[in-house]
């Protein structure tokens, strides 16, 4: 008699959690609020309201690799990213902000938010160095936890998004 591989066992071990099973919007917002107050300024509040799509968007993100694999992505308009960088640098902010200052400061905010999101997920996980540029694509809309907030009236979104496409569904 020959055993038939039905794929049952493989599918079972391939099962991976979706971010919506692991973290909710309220937790992401709370992490972001804490990061903003500590890094950007004591009076800097994120208002949980969606705004219009940012003009000239720019993103910063870190990748998490572990039981859940994906990215924590901050997206806002370029001018807002510059303002955020100035706020972060405070009196150390140069008169003329260079692109590398924005990459450094906006990336560090993603690093801090991402590191604390990672701590709320099952581990152990690795955390990448921050990157700044065009946001990585959302591979699986079901593996996404996103908040939209306003900072100084400007839209900022924070996405915790899986890096892997959806698993094929059983027939």
């Amino acid at each position: 008699m020959t055993a038939t591989d039905t794929g049952e066992r493989r599918r079972g071990s391939d099962a991976r959690p979706l971010i919506t099973d692991l973290i909710d919007e309220a937790t992401v917002e709370s992490i972001a609020q804490e990061a903003w107050v500590a890094l950007v300024g004591e009076d800097e509040i994120l208002v949980p309201l969606p705004g219009d799509a940012p003009v000239d968007p720019v993103s910063s993100w870190v990748d998490v690799v572990g039981p859940w694999t994906g990215s924590i992505v901050l997206t806002t308009g370029r001018r807002t990213a510059e303002e955020l960088s100035r706020a972060l640098l405070r009196e150390a902010s140069p008169e003329v902000l260079e692109e590398e200052d924005v990459v450094d400061a906006f990336g560090e905010i993603a690093n801090v938010v991402g590191g604390n999101v990672k701590a709320a997920l099952p581990g152990p996980s690795g955390l990448s160095l921050p990157e700044v540029g065009e946001a990585p694509a959302v591979r699986n809309p079901g593996d996404l936890c996103r908040i939209d907030v306003l900072w100084r009236g400007e839209p900022v979104s924070i996405s915790v998004q899986g890096a892997l496409p959806p698993l094929p569904t059983a027939p």
């Binding site: 890094l39 960088s85 972060l88 640098l89 405070r90 009196e91 150390a92 200052d101 450094d104 400061a105 990336g107 560090e108 690093n111 160095l129």
Partner: peptide, 12 residues
Amino acid sequence: DDSRAMRRIVSG
């Protein structure tokens, strides 16, 4: 720290 911003903050 690899972030200049963070180095400035901690040093400050």
